[in-house]
Design a binder for these strands. Structure first.
Lengths: 200, 200
DNA sequence: GTCATCATGTAAGCCGTTACATGATTGC
DNA sequence: GCAATCATGTAACGGCTTACATGATGAC
């Protein structure tokens, strides 16, 4: 939520829609969870209610009725609405922005979902911050791989569990290669930026 | 818990130890969650308290003290204990076994953890049950892959999110290949069993 | 006028976590 | 006797889910 609000003020309903469509099944959230969360954030001073001036929100989608002529007529008839009093848009405060960066770079729980969420918002970090974020993840993955190797060929687990563990090790290895790619790209970006700064 | 108790009666502490060591970080559980859960299961009739006759539990590990002679002496001194009144072992009832199978084959949430947990206990299923379990998983993975393909090259997401989605698609593809392997192996097993039954 | 969608919220319940409390057994 | 481990539990808290309640707006 903080990540989305860092880009532009939004109201709850829109917030949920964007979360669902971008993060998809990766990070679901229900209204019963979203609105209380917004209240908490407002109370703690991370966000404030804001008048959504000028912004009319996204155009209402035209639901196909099956009648081509009807749909066309509906499209022509559409025009911007004047007011929408029921919506409550929130924007991030300075404290909220600080909190956001803090959460993004916090000591991480070795959690897939958590990492995925952070990564999808890491564009808000500076190059070096992003780099250390990625490297921390790399360390975690390396550590996860370590105990798998040291375990003797355990015959205490059945074939399904064994297959599972093996597959997970492979996946982790794959993740590691991916992170290494990301890190390499990031290093290039950082260096290029420094060059630019030096030549300026 | 039901899965472990299906193999042998155990007490809470031991249950937690086994869960942690086999499933590892995949399925953590705390005592504050474990004991109430045992109570609930007992109330609902899935498990019953049992006298742990004969079973002395696993031998207490010898903690290395740094003194080789001391450790050796400790090992020699060890002998089975007579009674252990504080432990409460539970065993699965018939209703519990039924519940276990039901949970194992229930309509699944498209959840990594949930699938991993079920797979690591699916040895308790019959061949055909296991096969349909795996095929259900396969369907889920296929469905997850579908929307990725139909999406137009979206330029609304930043490079990190794009990379994330791409990587996830690859991982899903990899998972799919793995499941296909498991299914193929399972089919072989089932067929071989049927042959055996037919020739008998 | 009615239905779908947009939009915001509340209440009950579930379940997990951390932190705390207790006590037996064993090694030294 | 003291510390570590084994072993079982309780209490407070947090946060998410489902289900419910409400009401505005726009399409037809």
């Amino acid at each position: 939520m903080l990540g989305l609000l860092n880009e532009q003020p939004l109201h709850g309903y829109e917030l949920k829609k964007r979360l669902s469509e971008t993060l998809g099944p990766l990070w679901g959230i229900s209204f019963g969870s979203l609105y209380p969360a917004l209240r908490r954030l407002e109370r703690s001073g991370a966000i404030t209610e804001t008048v959504s001036e000028g912004d009319d929100g996204p155009a209402a989608p035209i639901v196909p009725t099956g009648s081509v002529k009807g749909d066309l007529a509906a499209a022509l008839r559409r025009r911007p609405r004047s007011t929408r009093r029921t919506r409550k848009a929130y924007r991030l405060t300075d404290a909220g922005r600080e909190l956001f960066i803090e959460l993004l770079t916090a000591p991480e729980t070795d959690d897939e979902r958590s990492f995925a969420l952070r990564l999808s918002f890491c564009r808000h970090l500076t190059g070096p911050e992003r780099l250390s974020f990625l490297e921390r993840r790399r360390t975690q993955l390396t550590q996860r791989l370590a105990p798998v190797r040291r375990t003797a060929p355990s015959r205490t687990v059945d074939r399904y569990t064994r297959s599972l563990l093996e597959h997970r090790a492979q996946t982790t290895q794959h993740d590691l290669e991916w992170i290494d790619e990301l890190i390499a790209e990031e290093r290039e970006l950082v260096e290029r930026t420094e060059e630019g700064a030096a030549s300026a």
